[in-house]
């Protein structure tokens, strides 16, 4: 009797363990199964490299090139803005707060703030972006494009707003991972550099950061993954038209395209949206493979 329960318990744990594997397989299969038909119906070049998105016109056109481009530009824009700020904050946390009471308190306050920023739901970022960023962007837009007849006014919901919101949202990821990899740099490297007469700043930028490079890169790639997958917050601030990704254009990303059109789409339009999902999934898989590769490399480096 007891042996039977023992064996049964072992099997149940095995099944539970395999659920994660089954889920990943199921998600991958569904993404490809649902996402590929539209590729053949519309044609691969027309769909992936077409620039006109008119799903409900008499002669519907399903080009998602600008959507893919917006996702790439938006993600890199947010990384360009967020990563330097994130790394500098990590440097502050690791090398600027000495052992004194004051130093420890400051570092604690900043880490707590970063933690809370990470915990705030994305819709709140979107809401605040709508109320603060968009009106500000609209003012700038009115100034910059004052006499322009070509520019379509967006009311401030544009690519730039989305990039700023994304940059803020990836900040905690970049800060936490950079800080822990900077902390892992042996103190002897710092001491040696300082003893050779380098200033503190030189030591940080010429010795410590290069030594922590692989960890920081992991943080950056994780940030890229977060930025490209974020949907709700940027859907609230980026406007609702498929456009070439210029700073003051209203744009659609892969994610926001799904959020805003999935609800009412049907037929081929819906199948094309599944393809949009598939493109996003492929981006995510590539980013994940990069991450595992880098982690393996990192482990080898510490051996």
């Amino acid at each position: 009797m007891q042996k039977k329960t023992e064996k049964l318990a072992g099997y149940i744990f095995l099944v539970f363990g395999c659920i994660a594997v089954v889920s990943v397989l199921a998600i991958t299969i569904f993404m490809f199964w649902k996402g590929t038909p539209a590729l053949f119906e519309v044609g691969v070049p027309e769909l992936l490299f077409g620039t006109v998105w008119k799903p409900s016109a008499d002669q519907p056109s399903y080009g998602i090139f600008y959507i893919i481009l917006s996702s790439i530009v938006g993600t890199f824009g947010s990384v360009l803005l967020g990563v330097p700020i994130g790394i500098l904050t990590a440097v502050f946390l690791t090398d600027f707060t000495d052992g004194s009471k004051m130093g420890r308190a400051t570092s604690k306050v900043i880490s707590s703030a970063v933690e809370l920023l990470a915990a705030i739901p994305s819709v709140i970022y979107g809401l605040i972006g709508m109320m603060i960023l968009n009106p500000f962007m609209y003012k700038m837009e009115k100034k910059i494009f004052a006499g322009s007849t070509e520019h379509q006014f967006t009311g401030g919901a544009n690519l730039l707003s989305a990039i700023i919101v994304l940059a803020i949202m990836i900040l905690p990821t970049v800060i936490n991972i950079s800080a822990s990899s900077i902390r892992a740099v042996p103190g002897s490297l710092r001491s040696a550099s300082l003893a050779l007469g380098a200033s503190k700043i030189q030591t940080i930028f010429k010795v410590v950061l290069p030594a922590a490079r692989s960890g920081i890169m992991t943080g950056v790639v994780l940030g890229i993954g977060r930025a490209i997958g974020e949907a709700m917050a940027i859907n609230m601030v980026a406007g609702g038209a498929v456009n070439i990704p210029l700073p003051f254009n209203s744009v659609r990303f892969l994610t926001t395209q799904l959020v805003s059109e999935m609800g009412y789409s049907s037929g081929l339009h819906r199948r094309v949206l599944f393809t949009v999902g598939l493109v996003l999934y492929i981006f995510i898989v590539i980013i994940n493979l990069f991450l595992t590769h880098m982690k393996k490399k990192g482990e080898r480096a510490y051996d």
């Binding site: 395999c18 994660a20 594997v21 998600i27 993404m31 977060r226 997958g229 799904l258 999935m262 994940n288």
Partner: peptide, 22 residues
Amino acid sequence: IEFATEVLSGIPSIIFGLFGMM
């Protein structure tokens, strides 16, 4: 299993939503 868990934690929520809907 550990690889699958890691992949799962890297998938953005909109993809989960899409899969859940499908």
